[in-house]
């Protein structure tokens, strides 16, 4: 599985988060984070996003997080979805259901 294109998931509704993942060649994870609850939850949102990316094996990417108060489970799901869309799993239907997505 490899990031081939820009993958986006989520909405700008309240209690949701929009995640955009853009493949890059090097430079690690370049994260930009905006959130309506940044003062109280910015640290946790960042940790959740980075943790999910690590689990998915993403080492280099430009990641834009636009959060409107999403819970951790939502953030995790949106990161996974954005990543697999970036891997074009939605084109060839190769979502790795069971196990990897959790």
């Amino acid at each position: 599985m490899e990031l081939k294109a820009v993958g986006t998931a989520g909405t700008l509704e309240s209690s949701d988060v929009m995640i955009t993942i853009e493949p890059t060649k090097s430079g690690g994870i370049d994260l930009s984070l905006e959130s309506s609850v940044i003062n109280q939850y910015g640290r946790q949102i960042k940790a959740q996003v980075l943790d999910s990316l690590k689990r998915l094996g993403v080492e280099n990417a430009k990641v834009i997080v636009n959060d409107h108060g999403a819970l951790d489970c939502t953030i995790k799901a949106r990161v996974e979805c954005a990543y697999y869309r970036g891997c074009q799993c939605d084109v060839d239907g190769t979502y790795p259901w069971g196990g990897v997505i959790r």
Binding site: V37, N39, Q40, Y41, G42, R43, Q44, L71, D72
Partner: peptide, 10 residues
């Protein structure tokens, strides 16, 4: 337990 413990404001 639902939303996590908020960090203190700065």
């Amino acid at each position: 337990s639902m939303v996590g413990k908020p960090d203190d404001l700065q």
